[in-house]
Design a protein around this nucleic acid. Sequence first.
RNA 1: CGGGGAGUAGCGCAGCCUGGUAGCGCGCAUGCUUCGGGAGCAUGAAGCCGCGGGUUCAAAUCCCGCCUUCCCGACCA
Length: 570
Amino acid sequence: MRYTQFLIPTLREVPADAEVVSHQLMLRSGMIRKLAAGIYSTLPLGERVMRKTAQIVREEMNRAGALELTLPFVQPAELWHESGRWNAYGKELLRLKDRNEREFCLGPTHEEVITDVARGLISSYKQLPVTLYQLHIKFRDEIRPRFGVMRAREFVMKDAYSFDADEAAAERSYMKMYEAYTNIFARLGLRFRAVEADSGPIGGSFSHEFMVLADTGEDVIVTCTACDYAANTEKAEIRVPDAVEAAADQFGALARVATPDMRTIDEVCSFLKTGPASVIKTLVFDTGEGAVVALVRGDHDINEIKLKNYLACSELALADEDLIEKVTGAPRGFAGPEGLSGVRIIADYGLKGCFNMVAGGNERDMHVVNLNFVRDFNVDAFADIRLAGQGDACPRCGKPLTTTRGIEVGHIFKLGTKYSTSMRAEFLDARGESHPMVMGCYGIGVGRTVAAAIEQSHDGDGIIFPAPIAPFTVLIVLVNPTDAQQHQIAVDLYEKLLGHGVEVLLDDRDERPGIKFKDADLIGIPLRVTVGRNAVKDGLIDIKWRKTGAQAQAALTDAVENVLEALPNL
RNA sequence: CGGGGAGUAGCGCAGCCUGGUAGCGCGCAUGCUUCGGGAGCAUGAAGCCGCGGGUUCAAAUCCCGCCUUCCCGACCA
């Protein structure tokens, strides 16, 4: 491709509304342009990157035996009523009506449609297993789109769905996808990690997220320093500590102290000259069907997902001021476990064995000190309800966990029969009995993967594309296109490389060299070849590696060979 | 939805407080010079000052309402 015949509208300045690096660089390099919040056009350069990424995904899905198809983007409400998600999905589902007032939605995911397809086509165990996938657009009306294509409302996704005759077979399909995903992200040249994840409202027995490791990631993941345990903090378990019950003779005398206007753990701690580990954080939650009180140590954070799973409730939110007051008799900031009645109290394991604690006094401007379990208050249960973090014990081996940040680029779920049951997607087994198909679903955000790659691989000058997804492999900078000799040399090289099947971009613009070099760095093509006065004078070209900054000179006569040799190691 | 910013040329911004012919830098077009890391000079095109209402002789500027957008939070495969 000749630069003058392509369209790469690079920006010198950083667009004001781009915060994260990948977003800035995708705008500056001319890959994307914003149309509306969370809605982007993909420009020719970005399109090449997206397609390369998608193609790798496609190849690995095919290799795993999955079959590509395309499902409708606009979906009738009836299907969503069948699965029960028309009401359950919330405002993220963009609903619309056609000219006859029939209700539709834009597909945020395609379980309903694929299940409908499967029940129409599959009727016998002989047709199973089958995994179907597509690469196309999703729309989710996110509460807050942000970070460019990382959290867009409209985005390209690969979504796959497996159908099996039984649990064991479904697990094999799941493992196949797990392997395919591992291959995909490895081929894309990303540093990533598969982690155990919460399966969320979709349900199902287990789930893994594929995380690209990057400091700017939205998700925090914990990994074990000793074994291979890794999980999203939403899910990460904490080993139940060996409880050492405090002896009663260590208990101090329970006392109430005035703590005027001190509502936060920090305020109370500095006032009472103690540390947050000696405080019981008392949180009131609204489950929609009554309040629940959760207790965690002051230096710990509640994990609402764990609490929600433990309580097995469908809704869970921090209580508002009114409910707090109803439950504790005090305004926010003075809740404590002592003297509460008529409400379930769940305490985190981290509080086991703690004694002489500080907690709210359930009265305005009052806290209690030397509060002790059993003597002063009781709980309904101890459970693992806090967020795992640096130094917590690994649930598998007990060694310390460490935290890193990641960007979720893929997620695989074992769905079970949730959709096949509600939508009656059934097949006949060898004995003629009817069963719901056992399903799995598997997603990869293509745009997000590209953004994650950039997030993970860039420098102050611009993008450093991993070679497998680079829009071009080689960029020839023709320093002075008005010099006929230079021009001829560059075009010769360009055509020879094209002849070898190399994806080459020839920068034949009549621009100053500085502009060309800056743009070259910005758009991040792995290998740069400079044809300038040295080529005319001495028959030499310069080769520069974008990733390492390494440079080499080559004789014109060996140029093609030298470039070809460099390609496998990009 | 709560809190906080911002909407003025393609991009980045000033002007607004104190009302009076809409500016700067980059980019774009043309010409000359230049040409191995974002050149110089000259000339030029380009604006519904987010939208609607109000105050005023006069509104980018003051007042009211709305929209959009970004950030933090809540939420979220």
